[in-house]
């Protein structure tokens, strides 16, 4: 049973959207703390650039492309949901999930290669940051994909279509975090 409180809109923004924005805000601070720590260290240690050179920029770039494409399908899904076309919205969400799967597989391949070359999470502070930041982000990708599947299940039946927008907001956030991580971890010299 939904409480009356949930149906009110005194601030003029639907409650679900408001809550997701607050979730995103607190997530920003979590990643913000981690990345600020990394940047401060990175500035103090120019020699980390040599270690960063061992990352695979091409695969990282490919993954950036994959995530950006998945954000596009998320937007199209929201558009379909606004038009009331649940099944189409669900199909587009599945496409977004496919992006997530590709991203994680590429990531797994990258990490196996790096670990086999001896760059593990305990090798140095740079590698600790590298695996922790990318790992935390990958967990968000996986969690987002799972939630997206659940949303798609209901959207398929034309139910709870507003949730398509909510997971879309979250997915854009996950995307944007990667846009920060990629240059900071892979490219910065």
């Amino acid at each position: 049973m939904r409480p009356i409180a949930n149906t009110r809109m005194a601030a003029g923004i639907p409650t679900g959207r408001l809550a997701v924005w607050w979730v995103v805000a607190s997530e920003i601070v979590i990643f913000g703390g981690l990345l600020a720590s990394y940047i401060m260290h990175r500035i103090a240690h120019p020699e980390w650039g040599d270690q960063a050179a061992n990352t695979n920029v091409w695969l990282g770039g490919f993954n950036t492309f994959v995530l950006l494409t998945s954000s596009l399908t998320a937007v199209l899904s929201h558009k379909a949901a606004t038009a009331g076309n649940g099944p189409k919205a669900a199909r587009l969400l599945y496409a977004t999930c496919l992006g997530a799967v590709i991203f994680v597989c590429v990531k797994a391949f990258e990490w196996t290669t790096e670990i086999s070359h001896g760059y593990t999470i305990t090798s140095s502070t740079f590698w600790s940051f590298y695996y922790t930041a990318a790992g935390l982000h990958a967990l968000h990708v996986i969690a987002g994909a799972i939630i997206m599947l659940l949303v798609a299940e209901t959207a398929k039946k034309n139910l709870e279509l507003h949730r398509v927008e909510l997971i879309g907001i979250y997915w854009h956030f996950v995307d944007i975090v990667w846009i920060f991580l990629f240059p900071l971890l892979y490219i910065a010299k």
């Binding site: 805000a25 607190s26 997530e27 601070v29 979590i30 990643f31 703390g33 981690l34 720590s37």
Partner: peptide, 10 residues
């Protein structure tokens, strides 16, 4: 919400 994030990361 605005302050606890870095400590969660920490």
């Amino acid at each position: 919400m605005a302050s606890v994030g870095p400590l969660i990361a920490g």
